[in-house]
Amino acid sequence: MPSIHLLLVDDEERFLTTTRKLIEKRGVTTFIASNGVDALKVMGEHPIDVVVLDVKMPGMDGVEVLRHIKLKHPLIEVIMLTGHASAESAVEGLKLGAFDYVTKPYEVSRLMEKVEKAYAKKHAMEEKIRKAKIERIIGHPMAVFESDAEDE
């Protein structure tokens, strides 16, 4: 399995750096962002697979960031970090297409399980899309140009 590219979004700096170290140790390439705007920027610059997104942040809150992510990068899976299952709009996040939520405080290992599942889902989805494309190209070779256009 190729290395997972994870983006960690939280307004707590120390949490970001420590968690990043812990996660990198587990062989996951980790990016961090301390607010929604930065997070979207990072996603534009790096190929991100999974985003771990704190719901409650100053400025753009988690749910709003999630909306943007799903709009620009529909394939990226998002895991919501919340203080409380229902209170922190985890449910709303799920409705908007988040993969899952984790309630604080949590053990890194528990988070990693979910991250891996999310990645697996994304991977499977990409795989499916690729297969579909290939089938399409086989069926209609001209489609290569279409799909290229689509990718951009």
Partner: peptide, 16 residues
């Protein structure tokens, strides 16, 4: 909720 955030940081540090 406010206490959960520092708890989370502690949890991470602890894990480290």
């Amino acid at each position: 909720h406010e206490i959960n955030n520092p708890l989370q940081v502690m949890q991470s540090e602890l894990t480290m």
